[in-house]
Design a protein around this nucleic acid. Sequence first.
DNA 1: TTCGGCTATCGTCGTTAAACGATTTATAGA
DNA 2: TCTATAAATCGTTTAACGACGATAGCCGAA
Lengths: 116, 116
Amino acid sequence: MYMLSYPILAKAADDERLAALAKALAHPARLKILALLARTPGCIGGDIVQAVGLAQSTVSEHLRILKAAGVIEGQIDPPRVCYALAPGALAPLAELIGALEAASGDPACCVTPDNT
Amino acid sequence: MYMLSYPILAKAADDERLAALAKALAHPARLKILALLARTPGCIGGDIVQAVGLAQSTVSEHLRILKAAGVIEGQIDPPRVCYALAPGALAPLAELIGALEAASGDPACCVTPDNT
DNA sequence: TTCGGCTATCGTCGTTAAACGATTTATAGA
DNA sequence: TCTATAAATCGTTTAACGACGATAGCCGAA
């Protein structure tokens, strides 16, 4: 386990970045695409379109969003494009979640102890 | 390294759930709220409003979204409401990210080996 | 050079999200 | 009872998202 170096967030810019990363995952179709890429040993071109069951233009847009967020990378293989997961891209988000989970242990809240 | 028990996703319902969880994190203001709750030993009522710098109604809406996603819990302390992080709520998302990161190791892609 | 398969982009439409002010509700204390 | 405070809700406006069809660009193969 890492020695958590995060101050649980601080700069607004970090919030923006992390929010953008989370937004990339915030759609079923994009999760499906990521799962597909994770499961596929090689890569796939337009098979993604068929797998997610949406129009080609829609899938292309989702791919663009994932690429813009840095979650996937596209490499051109002549007639098609090969997409792959970008290693480490989601690490900041994982760190954030880890920090939040770690901090959610103590409910030393405003509870008046006698409110049974 | 874990023996991954997750099939990296399968059901569409899972995608929906995970996407909803990610969407809860997909906004800077909400991240700020979560960070504040994580950092605050006790709880806070309207201090959140001041901290995020948005209108009270807007913050209330963000809190509602976080609560609906199960990421936070609100407990009524008479004049105010005490919010706290919900332990374990983000675990499924953390698992997903872990699975994706674990799978992003092999770029055994469509690369034609001779493309320098 | 022409054809055909893949991608990406454009324009559009309907839906959802974000933000605000104003209002309502609930409760503690005067 | 009345008042003040905190939180939620309502109604509205603006912006962003999601999805699609149609179109344009790019190579490989014929």
